[in-house]
Write a protein that binds this DNA or RNA. Structure first.
Lengths: 253, 253
DNA sequence: CGCGACCTTGAGTAGGCTCAATGCCGGTGG
DNA sequence: CCACCGGCATTGAGCCTACTCAAGGTCGCG
């Protein structure tokens, strides 16, 4: 792939992976770490805007996000786009492709990013030899299903302003979970209003006006491609409760 | 639970499970069957309209649908409802509850139904002793994520008539996969227009009018709580292509 | 016979869409 | 150094899809 820069070999030994220091990730035994090491086949670097994989392709790899952001989306034949979710450091990608015949969605980098690469065959070895890690993989799948459930509820049943409030809270929570913002509510992610619109099933113009309402209501601040949450309570009120899932200690492959 | 009728012991030995005869389900080895037998702790019968579990509760059980239909949904505090998906024979339910702290969604029977019950602890035994079955569980989770992706695309980016067309096709395909309809396109499921509306993020009235358009266009027929697909091509055209996922041979726990 | 569940239809409204134009900023090439 | 261009945010105007409120019809059941 011309656009993907393959970095040679293992760059970061898993034991030293900076992500593992974060308290959201459950500690691994050294035996588990050794296996993950052997499972990992290298790293990839991606520039903002580049695709990691595309709908319809088969994808032999699995990935863990080391740094940077991406989003997962689907397109309709005429080009309408629905963003399904955002991928943050620690997220495990490509399970669908390794388990099914072909990818049913695409993933594109939102910022420059680095990912760990695993071979599909390794996944089978993982299941054969490490019950705990297998369980972790399933756990991650179940969790991402929960997030999709929430998103579907939002898009199906919330009004525009409720959707915006809910999404912004959700993003702020996820970002701060993995330590990407020093203050919990100052979010610095390279997201455009078009992304928000495509996430929420709204038009760009209407998204802009709706964010405008939140800005004028002093609930958030928006300055080119990043935002800040000023009034968390107001947003939670609008969103109809804060549905962040607690007990968020999770595995990191 | 007053409303749930617990049937004693194992009613149907897994080897004789009528579902296994269907060609959509991958054949199990007798060793696997024996394990599933030992994993299964009994059956439950549910009457139409009864809940299987509710959001916020913890749920120690896993279920496989033996017969009947159900749907999975979430509610907003003010009562707005979003249906997330439909559960059909062979579907595996409750993974989220077994793997996370508590249920983030509810499930309600659409018709009378019978389900196999498994204990949450058994799942751990399964992962420890049967790599193949563990992989199957993950496979099922990945597949239901794909279905959610499709649904989210629909609700977020399709117009009312496109959503209806897509959903009806999808339901018809799933139902005929598990042999619930003799002709592929005559669907007999006890679904109301309110369910359709809540699945698609539309109001009841608008759903009714939209279905009316499809009926007048001779694409479908609707007679109280069941429907028939008359013109599959027209629906596929409206839906923007048939996105049924091929290679649908799947495991059955 | 009355009631409840579901489907249908009408009328008026509004939330969200499209089209279109403008402003801002950063990068790039002449 | 400046002109131009592309990406993003913003705003106005008009329209239409989908919503709400409301009423009526059918059917099955106690």
């Amino acid at each position: 792939m011309a656009h993907k820069k393959e970095l040679q070999g293992r760059q970061v030994p898993c034991q030293l992976c900076p992500l593992r220091k974060q308290k959201v990730f459950r500690p691994f035994t050294s035996e588990e770490l050794a296996f993950v090491m052997s499972f990992k086949s290298g790293e990839v670097a991606l520039k903002a805007g580049e695709p990691l994989f595309l709908e319809g392709n088969s994808c032999a790899n699995l990935y863990t996000v080391l740094s940077g952001l991406a989003f997962r989306f689907k397109l309709l034949p005429d080009g309408r786009r629905q963003i399904l979710n955002y991928c943050m450091p620690g997220d495990f990608l490509g399970l669908q492709g390794s388990v099914m015949l072909e990818m049913q969605h695409s993933v594109e980098a939102l910022s420059d990013m680095v990912l760990c690469v695993f071979q599909r065959e390794g996944l089978w070895r993982l299941f054969e030899s490490h019950a705990g890690l297998s369980f972790d993989v399933t756990w991650l799948a179940a969790r991402s299903e929960q997030l999709l459930d929430q998103q579907l509820l939002s898009v199906g049943r919330r009004s525009a302003i409720e959707r915006c409030a809910h999404l912004l809270l959700h993003l702020a929570d996820r970002v701060s979970e993995v330590g990407l913002s020093r203050k919990r509510d100052t979010i610095r992610i390279p997201i455009t209003q078009q992304h928000i619109a495509d996430t929420l099933g709204l038009s760009l113009v209407h998204t802009n006006r709706t964010l405008g309402r939140l800005i004028r209501g002093r609930a958030i601040r928006w300055r080119e491609q990043e935002f800040e949450i000023l009034d968390r309570d107001q947003l939670a009120e609008l969103a109809g409760g804060d549905d962040a899932i607690p007990g968020a200690v999770r595995p990191l492959l």
